[in-house]
Design a binder for these strands. Structure first.
Length: 604
RNA sequence: CGGGGAGUGGCGCAGUCUGGUAGCGCACCCGGCUGGGGGCCGGGCGGUCGCAGGUUCAAAUCCUGUCUCCCCGACCA
C-alpha cells in the first residue's frame, strides 16, 4: 500500500544533538515527528499513522461504553473561563481578536461542554450522558521537554460524564475505568492505574494511568496490589537504626552545621535521628483551589488559582513542618494537610519568627507558630528512644533528646514522601518513574455550579449535575511505547500501534530478479489488504535494514537472493530481532495473508 | 523565574580565544562501480555564520542589545 520511494519518511542517522529522551531521539530519527518550535511538533505521515492507531483504539472503547463523540472549539470566549475562575491559570493562552474581545485557547474543555449541557439538559430524563472529543489542547507550559512527552499543543481525548447524583457519577467513573483498562491493554503498553491526588474536591476520587519508563516525569509507588502516585502515596517508614547513642549534653555546639547531613555526620548519627524543620508560609488568600479537569494527560497539571476569593485579607501565616531527617516533605500532601497552598519561608521570615536558618527547631516556640509533625515521627516515638536532634533556634546550636509532645505541641499529619525502604503491609515499596498517559477524575459540582448546569428531578426540584472528566493523550501513549520497547536498533512497536504491519525489504539492484520478486510479493500483500511498507528505494541493503529496524514495524519481510534460492520469504520479528518461519515466495494473496495472520497472532 | 549550554548548508560539527576570500563528514544532484547490514570512485549544487546595532580598512570571530532552542531546577487540578 505504500512504497518507500514515494513516501515522506525522513529518517536520520543521528539524533538531534539536544535530544535526551529515547522517544525524542528515536521518533525524530525514524521520521515520525519534527519540531517547529519549543513544545510544538508536527506529526509526519508515519508518525500520524501511529497516532491515529491510538485514536482508533480509544474511540472504539469510548463508543463501547456509550460515549458520544463530538467536537468543540479550541478558540473560546474568555468570559466562560472567568465564570469558572480558570482565567487566572498561567498556562492558559489568552488573546484578543481584532475587535479587542478577549479570547482564550482551551487547555481542556470543561467550560465548553458544561455550557452546552447547561443549555440542553433540562430533565433527569436527559441524564446520564457521556460526551467526548479528540481535540487539540493549548498550554503555555513553563518548560516543554522530551519531544512529544510534554508539549504546548497536543491532541487529547477528553470525555465528560453528566449524572444526576454521586452514585451516577460513580457508575460513569467505573465505566471509564473499564474503558481505560481495555485501551491500555490493547495498546500493548505496560501500565499501572494508580491512586492520584483528589485535592480539595472532597476525595471524590481520581486515578492516573501511568506507563513506566525512565523518561517519565512522575513517580509511582508500588507494593503488592498497592499503586499510587508518589504525590499521594503513604507507607510505613523504615525504623531508624541508631549506631551511636545520642550525645548526652542537652545542648550541642554545632558551628556552621546547617544541614541535616552535616549535623548527622558530625555527631555520627543516622539522619533519621534528626528532625528536619521545613518552615513554610501560607499566603493570605491562597486557598488551595483545585480546578479539576481532564487535564494532565498529555501534559502539565493546570495551575489552580481558580477563583480564590479574597474578600477578607488574613495575614500570611508561618507554619513549621517537621519530618524525620531522612525524609522529604511532599508538597502535595502538605497542601492537603494545610488546606491551602504554601511556599517555603524566606530566610528573613525564618529569622524573624523562629531563629537563624539552619538552626531552627520546634522547641520554645510557645504556640507562636503552628507545628505540623509528620506521622513517621508522631506515630513512632519509639524509633529513637532518646528523642531527636533538632535546631535550637539559636546560632550554631542544636538540641538533643527532643521529644514530641513533651518538648513541643504538634499536629500529626502525613506530609512526607514515600521513599525506598518503606513498606506497605510488610511489602517493601518500589518507586518507578512513569509517564502519565491518562487520568480519570470525579469533578462533582466544580463546573456545573458556576456554569449553571442543572436538571429538574422527578419532584420538579432543580439539582446540580454531577460531573466527571477523563483524559487520555495519544501522543504520550505513542511515546511511552517507544520508551518501553526500543532497543539498540530503534523502535519496536507493539503490534497495535505500528505504523505498518510489515516492512518489506527487497534487496538487489533495480530490475534484478530479486527486485521483481519483491514487486510480486508487494502486490500480493496489497491485494490481501495487508498494511505493508515496501522499501523499493535504490539504496544498499544495509540502509534498508537499518531503516526498517529504526522504524520498528513488528514484522520485516526480506526478498533477496536467499529467498529466490530457498523459495521462502525471510521473516524477522522486530521484537528481539528473531527469525520466524518463512513464507512461500510464490504464494498468492490469500496464502500470504493467512501466513501473516498466523505470525501476527503471536506478536506482542 | 533561577542556573547551565547552544545557534555556522537538510543533519552532525570545526573555525571564534589571536579579526584578513566560510570549512569537514553525512545527506542531496550527475556519472560509474557495488548489491544481504548505513559500500566505493569521480564530478557538482547548496550557507544573509539567529537577528539588530556598534568598533574596524576589514567581523562568523571584538562590543552592546535582542530573539530562539536545549538541559537541570522552580513551577505544574
Amino acid at each position: 500500500m505504500t512504497r518507500l520511494s514515494e513516501y515522506l519518511l525522513p529518517t536520520e542517522r543521528k539524533a538531534p544533538a539536544d535530544a535526551e529522551a529515547i522517544s525524542h531521539k528515536l521518533m525524530v530519527r525514524a521520521g515520525l515527528i519534527r519540531q517547529i518550535g519549543a513544545g510544538m511538533w508536527t506529526w509526519m505521515p508515519a508518525g500520524w499513522r501511529v497516532h491515529q492507531r491510538v485514536v482508533s483504539i480509544i474511540r472504539e472503547e469510548m463508543d463501547a461504553i456509550g460515549a458520544q463523540e463530538m467536537l468543540m472549539p479550541v478558540l473560546q470566549p474568555a468570559e466562560l473561563w472567568r465564570k469558572t475562575g480558570r482565567i487566572a491559570i498561567d498556562e492558559l493562552f489568552k488573546l484578543h481578536d481584532r475587535k479587542g474581545a478577549e479570547l482564550v485557547l482551551a487547555m481542556t474543555h470543561e467550560e465548553a461542554v458544561t455550557t452546552h449541557v447547561a443549555q440542553v439538559v433540562r430533565s433527569y430524563r436527559d441524564l446520564p450522558k457521556i460526551l467526548y472529543h479528540f481535540q487539540v489542547k493549548e498550554r503555555d507550559e513553563p518548560r516543554p521537554r522530551a519531544g512529544v512527552l510534554r508539549t504546548r499543543e497536543f491532541v487529547m481525548k477528553d470525555s465528560y460524564s453528566f449524572d444526576r447524583d454521586d452514585q451516577g457519577l460513580a457508575k460513569s467513573y467505573d465505566l471509564h475505568v473499564g474503558a481505560y483498562d481495555r485501551i491500555m491493554e490493547r495498546t500493548g503498553l505496560r501500565f499501572y492505574c494508580v491512586e492520584a491526588d483528589v485535592g480539595m474536591m472532597g476525595g471524590l476520587g481520581a486515578h492516573e494511568y501511568m506507563a513506566p519508563c525512565p523518561a517519565g516525569e512522575n513517580e509511582v509507588v508500588l507494593a503488592g496490589s498497592y499503586a499510587a502516585n508518589i504525590e499521594v502515596a503513604s507507607a510505613t517508614p523504615q525504623q531508624v537504626q541508631l549506631t551511636e547513642p545520642l550525645p548526652q549534653p542537652r545542648e550541642l555546639s554545632t558551628p556552621g552545621l546547617t544541614s541535616v547531613e552535616e549535623v548527622a555526620t558530625s555527631l555520627g548519627l543516622a539522619p533519621g535521628a534528626l528532625l528536619k524543620a521545613y518552615p513554610v508560609v501560607v499566603e493570605a488568600g491562597a486557598a488551595r483551589a483545585k480546578t479539576g479537569s481532564a487535564g494532565n494527560v498529555g501534559n502539565a497539571k493546570e495551575g489552580g488559582a481558580g477563583g480564590a476569593s479574597t474578600s477578607e485579607a488574613p495575614a500570611d501565616r508561618l507554619v513549621l513542618v517537621l519530618v524525620r531527617g531522612d525524609h522529604m516533605v511532599n508538597e502535595i500532601k502538605l497542601g492537603l494537610a494545610l488546606g491551602a497552598r504554601s511556599r517555603p519561608a524566606r530566610p528573613e521570615e525564618i529569622s524573624a519568627q523562629l531563629g537563624p536558618p539552619g538552626f531552627i527547631g520546634p522547641v520554645g516556640l510557645d504556640g507562636r507558630v503552628e507545628i505540623l509533625l509528620d506521622n513517621a515521627v508522631a506515630e513512632r516515638l519509639d524509633a529513637t528512644e532518646g528523642g531527636y536532634v533538632t535546631g535550637a533556634n539559636r546560632p550554631d546550636t542544636h538540641l538533643t533528646g527532643v521529644r514530641p509532645g513533651r518538648d513541643f505541641a504538634f499536629r500529626a499529619v502525613d506530609v512526607r514522601s514515600v521513599c525506598e525502604g518503606d513498606t506497605i503491609d510488610g511489602v517493601p515499596v518500589t518507586i518507578e518513574p512513569a509517564i502519565e498517559v491518562g487520568n480519570i477524575f470525579k469533578l462533582g459540582l466544580r463546573y456545573s455550579e458556576p456554569l449553571g448546569a442543572t436538571y429538574l428531578d422527578e419532584n420538579g426540584v432543580q439539582q446540580a449535575i454531577w460531573m466527571g472528566c477523563y483524559g487520555i493523550g495519544p501522543a504520550r501513549i505513542a511515546a511511552a511505547a517507544v520508551e518501553q520497547y526500543a532497543d539498540e536498533q530503534g523502535i519496536s512497536w507493539p503490534k497495535a500501534l505500528a505504523p505498518f504491519a510489515l516492512h518489506l525489504v527487497a534487496v538487489g539492484k533495480q530490475g534484478s530478479p530479486e527486485r521483481e520478486a519483491g514487486e510480486r510479493v508487494y502486490e500480493a500483500l496489497r491485494a490481501a489488504g495487508v498494511e505493508v511498507l515496501y522499501d523499493d528505494r535504490d539504496v544498499g541493503p544495509g540502509e534498508k535494514f537499518a531503516d526498517a529496524e529504526l522504524l520498528g514495524c513488528p514484522l520485516r519481510l526480506t526478498v533477496g537472493k536467499r529467498a529466490l534460492e530457498s523459495g521462502e520469504i525471510e521473516v524477522q520479528v522486530r521484537r528481539g530481532r528473531a527469525a520466524a518461519p518463512g513464507l512461500p515466495l510464490g504464494g498468492d494473496a490469500p496464502t500470504l495473508a493467512a501466513g501473516i495472520a498466523e505470525l501476527w497472532q503471536d506478536l506482542p
